[in-house]
């Protein structure tokens, strides 16, 4: 019974996929119209890679700082970090980008759209990362901390040798997933006029009215970045499986 159901499901799914790809492949794309814009699209892809890579590093730093704040014994640090995380996670990225660009960056007289984009993206992803990091640290059993204290480690040594190494292994998959999100979220930076991948695709479409010929390469361009991350995540998960 189970195998019959599985086969039916496989056939239905297979047929759906085949139909989907048939639609994709038989669509009347106007590749010729797009061709003159390939340089722009490629440049936009490069900007997306650069913005995402920079924001990735900065978001990890912000995430770690927020985690330290949330676990801090000093209550204002705890309170502020918590407030920041809740505000960022509770509001749309689009609104944050608009406020960040037109209010904050304007008031601070920041010029570089690239730099502003990196900061906004990192500020957003950092809040999510800090929740992932905090969960990882809090998941380390109390007995491990007891054990570290028993052999005479100080608080900071306990973190360095016992808690962090174990927490890092546990949060790697979720962190990698968050990084993939960050790459895709960078597409929203077109609203501040940063010439990244999505912006270039939109412009190409606006000029040529060949929507799919412009957006299909966009999807593929993002997949080229996110697929390696999920592959790498799986590899890491397998490597650290010994712990359980």
């Amino acid at each position: 019974m189970k195998t019959v159901a599985a086969w039916i499901l496989a056939v239905v799914l297979g047929a759906s996929f085949a139909f989907f790809f048939y639609l994709l492949l038989t669509y009347n794309y106007q590749w010729a119209q797009i061709l003159p814009y390939r340089g722009n699209l490629l440049k936009g892809w490069g900007v997306t890679v650069a913005v995402s890579a920079s924001a990735l590093v900065l978001s990890a730093v912000i995430g770690a700082a927020l985690t330290a704040g949330q676990l801090s014994p000093v209550w204002p640090a705890r309170w502020l970090s918590r407030l920041y995380v809740e505000l960022i996670r509770g509001t749309p990225l689009l609104v944050q980008i608009l406020i960040g660009y037109y209010l904050v960056a304007n008031a601070l007289q920041m010029e570089s759209k690239f730099f502003i984009g990196v900061c906004l993206l990192a500020a957003f992803a950092g809040a999510y990362l800090s929740e992932i990091f905090r969960g990882g640290i809090e998941s380390i059993a109390k007995s491990q901390i007891d054990s570290a204290r028993a052999i005479g480690l100080t608080g900071s040594q306990t973190y360095r040798y016992v808690v962090i190494p174990q927490a890092v292994r546990r949060v790697l998959p979720a962190t990698a997933g968050q990084f993939a999100n960050l790459i895709k979220d960078s597409s929203l930076l077109y609203v501040i006029g940063l010439g990244e991948f999505t912006m270039q695709a939109r412009e190409t479409n606006a000029n040529t009215f060949s929507t799919f010929a412009a957006y299909l390469p966009l999807a593929i361009g993002y997949l080229v970045l996110t697929l390696p991350i999920s592959y790498w995540t799986r590899r890491l998960e397998e490597r650290f499986r010994y712990e359980t």
Binding site: Y161, Q166, E243
Partner: peptide
């Protein structure tokens, strides 16, 4: 020494 060993798994 603890009842539950408590070695560091990593």
């Amino acid at each position: 020494l603890f009842q539950s060993f408590n070695l560091f798994p990593h």
